[in-house]
Amino acid sequence: MDIPTPIPAQPTRFLDKVRSFIRLRGMAYKTEKTYLFWIKRFIRFHGLQHPEAMGSAEVEAFLSHLVLQANASVSTQRVALNALVFLYREFLSQPLDDLKFEQSRKPAKLPTVFSAEEASSVIRNLSGDYRLVAMLLYGSGLRINEALRLRVKDVDFDMQQLIVRSGKGGFGVRSPVDESF
């Protein structure tokens, strides 16, 4: 399990300030890690210049570099763009101008997924807690962390609903869709 990096009460380092800002906004820890990764990579790409000393031109150069030299996919470039837009617009309060950069044309790969029969076969060969979690994931569309955080009081058998707490996008209720197991 990931443990968030400790931050000083009064952060002085730039990245600690960004980390603190993200946590105060209640963003997911995975988002924090991803954004900080791309912010660090952007800073390194520009020879350790401080982001306040850079702007749209440097962001455009970095995003174009990801496609032209690093062969990044559309989604990778989009995540980097989101991290930098967040950094400039939200944290530094310096919205970026209309960005013009080389966009990735790398075709998106379709994920390989189980058919219903394959999923049923896998689940039938599991037992105990593993089977229960697999059935919840498949039958309700829960994410792994959402399933692992479920508590007994989150399961409503009468209404056939699950209460999802701290899920992506906030609080929600899900109804299982497949009871064939």
Rank of each mutant, 00 (worst) to 15 (best):
R131N: 01
P51C: 02
Q77M: 06
F45H: 14
S166K: 14
T76W: 02
R124I: 00
D129G: 06
Q160E: 13
K106A: 14
K100N: 12
I43R: 08
F181Y: 12
L48G: 06
F21I: 07
R151D: 15
K33Y: 00
A28M: 03
L48F: 15
I163M: 14
F37W: 09
A116P: 00
R149L: 07
H46S: 06
P11W: 10
F181K: 09
Q161N: 06
F14R: 08
Q161E: 15
K30A: 09
F62V: 02
L150V: 15
T12W: 07
Q161Y: 07
P176S: 09
M135V: 01
R78K: 14
F14N: 08
F114D: 06
E58Q: 13
L81Q: 11
V155S: 10
Y130C: 04
I39Y: 12
R44Q: 15
Q103S: 10
D156N: 15
P107S: 14
V18A: 08
D178V: 04
R143E: 08
P11R: 11
L99M: 04
T5G: 01
I7W: 01
G169K: 12
K17I: 08
H65N: 11
M54T: 09
S73N: 03
K17E: 13
T112R: 15
A61Y: 13
V67E: 04
W38C: 03
Y138N: 08
E117P: 00
R151C: 14
K40P: 10
K168H: 15
L142N: 03
D156G: 09
T34K: 01
P51H: 03
I43L: 04
S175V: 10
Q94P: 00
G172W: 02
K153D: 14
P8K: 05
K17H: 04
F157A: 11
Q10I: 13
Y88I: 03
L48A: 09
T76S: 11
K109T: 09
G172N: 05
D154Y: 14
N125G: 14
S20D: 13
V85G: 03
R124G: 00
S93K: 10
V74A: 13
